[in-house]
């Protein structure tokens, strides 16, 4: 469970990006964070990941004040995949093994348990066959999965992902969604910033729709369209008609 209470944040110059926002992201749920460009989605995620320090307000993760965790303890509680991910000269296995960093001691050596977690993450994401490859030689979709595998290896009960499906082809998008559902079914709290409204509605259990740093809609995914919040946030109207949809071939 991630709880934000009256969070306010803004950069030194200008009005606050987020003002007095309260929200709660439950365990065993996928929460899509939606909103127009500049509505504060990524800022909200960074605040939850302690990458930004709020001007005021409190953040609780797993029932405890987030400020009480040291850096590694917090990383064991909450994993965060930022929007910008560099592509260093590194093998896929080594990248995924970095997910174990907050679990390692001073010597930074992987224990048998750490190695199991890495193998599990590679298996879940279907990356075993490319584990020895240099990350830079993989396609965008595989790189994305490699980072997701790193997050899985981190084994935190809370996962925050900033636009994980952007720029991926439809097959990779759906594969990623399937993995996120599996993580939710393990009881984890999954929060995803997304741009594709249709995909968000099919993936998420709950939706938080932001507009100018304020929540326009905060509730179950089913209720988003009837609420009329999409019209107000984006200036577009959902049109429900028969259209082609895609699903993964098992």
């Amino acid at each position: 469970m991630i709880e934000l209470n009256r969070m306010t944040f803004g950069y030194a110059s200008g009005a606050p990006l987020i003002a007095g926002l309260s929200a709660r992201f439950g365990d065993g749920r996928i929460r899509a964070v939606l909103g127009p460009n500049g509505s504060g989605k990524s800022t909200l995620l960074r605040l939850c990941a302690r990458q930004l320090t709020p001007a005021s307000g409190t953040l609780r993760v797993g029932g405890q004040d987030a400020a009480g965790y040291d850096a590694k303890a917090f990383a064991r509680m909450l994993a965060y995949l930022p929007q910008s991910r560099p592509v260093p000269m590194i093998t896929v296995r080594a990248l995924v093994a970095h997910g174990r960093f907050p679990h390692l001691g001073m010597t930074r050596r992987l224990s048998a348990r750490d190695k199991d977690a890495v193998a599990h993450a590679l298996a879940v994401t279907g990356l075993c066959s490319v584990a020895g490859r240099d990350l830079r030689t993989l396609s965008g979709g595989q790189r994305q999965k490699a980072y997701l595998a790193m997050l899985i290896a981190q084994d935190a009960p809370h996962l925050l992902l900033d636009e994980p499906t952007t720029y991926l082809d439809i097959g990779h998008q759906l594969e990623l969604c399937a993995i996120l559902r599996a993580l939710r079914d393990e009881g984890r709290c999954v929060v995803v910033v997304m741009h594709d409204l249709a995909q968000a509605l099919s993936l998420a259990d709950d939706v938080l729709l932001l507009h100018g740093g304020q929540p326009l809609y905060d509730g179950p995914a089913d209720g988003l369209i009837p609420s009329g919040a999409i019209e107000r946030a984006f200036g577009v109207r959902p049109v429900l008609r028969e259209s082609v949809q895609f699903e993964r071939i098992p």
Partner: peptide, 8 residues
Amino acid sequence: EVAASLGL
């Protein structure tokens, strides 16, 4: 960002 999120 990634390094910080891993607890470094």
